[in-house]
Design a protein around this nucleic acid. Structure first.
Length: 173
DNA sequence: GCCAACGTTGGC
DNA sequence: GCCAACGTTGGC
């Protein structure tokens, strides 16, 4: 079984929306990046994915979803009404794929991106790479378990015991 | 709202 | 096939 990380902007489709969806299941349409699409296509039924809220306040890992249907054509691609319309796609040449995902759990505690960046075992994650934009990425089983665990409760040790607010960091770029 | 880091497009 | 221009993503 493989593990993944899928991003969604909560304004578009949050994990709470997924919880409210029929059968807590939705089609993951709208992926329009070839690399991300290819990852979608290699997903297997039963694979698990970290659900991540991008463009959120704060951006955070918020839960887990399961792949319940493997890749099939994304009809929004050839729907001129859709925000995801791609003029190159058609029913005969679907071009883009989607999977169905079902909610497994909303974490008791969302894990903000800033915190993920400080977690050693996650250092190699695509999500944490500078300038990373891929909306679908594989994660290792170890990374998956680490995030899953972080989502269950407060960090065991009060990380920095109410340290005074850090001075605003200049972005190093 | 800014803008770095990407991916894509299209002229050549 | 190169690469500048452009569009998008997404953290800040």
């Amino acid at each position: 079984m493989a593990c993944w990380l899928i991003k969604s902007e909560p304004e578009t489709f949050s994990i709470q929306d997924l919880a409210k969806a029929p059968k807590k299941t939705t089609s993951w349409e709208g992926v329009r990046n070839y690399q991300a699409r290819n990852f979608l296509r290699s997903m297997k039924r039963g694979d698990l994915a970290i659900y991540y809220h991008s463009n959120a306040e704060p951006p955070a890992a918020v839960g887990i979803a399961r792949i319940v249907r493997e890749a099939y054509p994304d009809p929004t691609a050839w729907d001129p009404e859709s925000a995801y319309h791609d003029p190159k796609a058609s029913p005969a040449n679907p071009l883009w794929s989607m999977v169905d995902v079902q909610l497994v759990e909303i974490f008791p505690r969302a894990i903000p991106l800033e915190e993920l960046r400080g977690v050693k075992p996650l250092a190699g994650m695509e999500l944490l790479r500078r300038g990373s934009r891929l909306s679908v990425t594989p994660v290792t089983a170890a990374e998956f378990r680490t995030i899953e665990k972080l989502g269950q409760a407060k960090p065991a040790a009060p990380a920095a015991k109410s340290a005074p607010a850090k001075p605003a960091k200049k972005r190093a770029r």
